[in-house]
């Protein structure tokens, strides 16, 4: 199809050129020369002054974009890692503090128990000592009382004997002494 129409076209154009002189399909050597020269010059000049700087600038920009994207990705990863670390250490610290609190509570409990026990014992001991002291004092007081009673009795007897008394009087005297004693 293509070959057919191209051939028909060529035939027509060639016939044109034969009749008109310098047809559509006749290659003009001068134009070909100028085209070659222009194109080669353009290729060299554009490569030197346009394509190289443009392409390197494009590449530089693309690299910069790629780099910054990669860096951002890296930074994101790092931040994630740091966050995880932080969370990890935070939970660790929380555990640690819980443990410390637990320990100190236990310690305080123990101390309290110990102190209560100690103070109870102390109190008991004090009470016992006090009781013993009271007993002792009581005994001493009794002894003294006994001695005094004995002495007073002796003195009373002495007075009775000295004053030679009747029964009535004696009785009063004795009562009086006893009263004195009880007052004391």
């Amino acid at each position: 199809m293509i070959a057919n129409s191209t051939f028909a076209f060529l035939a027509l154009v060639v016939s044109e050129s034969e009749s008109g002189g310098g047809g559509l399909l006749s290659v003009n050597g001068g134009l070909a020369f100028w085209t070659s020269l222009t194109f080669i010059l353009l290729l060299i000049l554009l490569t030197r002054f346009a394509w190289k700087p443009i392409l390197s600038a494009l590449k530089q920009r693309e690299d910069a974009i790629k780099d910054s994207l990669e860096q951002a990705e890296k930074a994101k990863d790092e931040a994630k890692q740091i966050l995880a670390q932080n969370q990890n250490s935070l939970s660790k610290a929380e555990d640690e503090s819980k443990k410390i609190i637990e320990q100190s509570r236990l310690f305080a409990q123990n101390l309290k128990d110990q102190m209560i026990k100690d103070s109870k014992e102390e109190a008991k001991k004090l009470i016992e000592e006090a009781a013993a002291e009271i007993d002792r004092k009581k005994n001493a007081a009794f002894d003294e009382l006994k001695n005094q009673i004995a002495e007073i009795s002796v003195q009373a007897a002495e007075k009775i004997l000295k004053e030679n008394l009747d029964a009535e009087k004696n009785r009063k005297i004795v009562d009086k002494y006893i009263n004195e004693i009880s007052k004391n």
Partner: peptide
């Protein structure tokens, strides 16, 4: 025209990416 256009484009990259 092509040369002028492309050198201008190349120059533009020097001032700003």
């Amino acid at each position: 025209l092509l040369f002028i256009v492309m050198t201008r484009v190349a120059k533009a990259y020097k001032s700003s990416m």
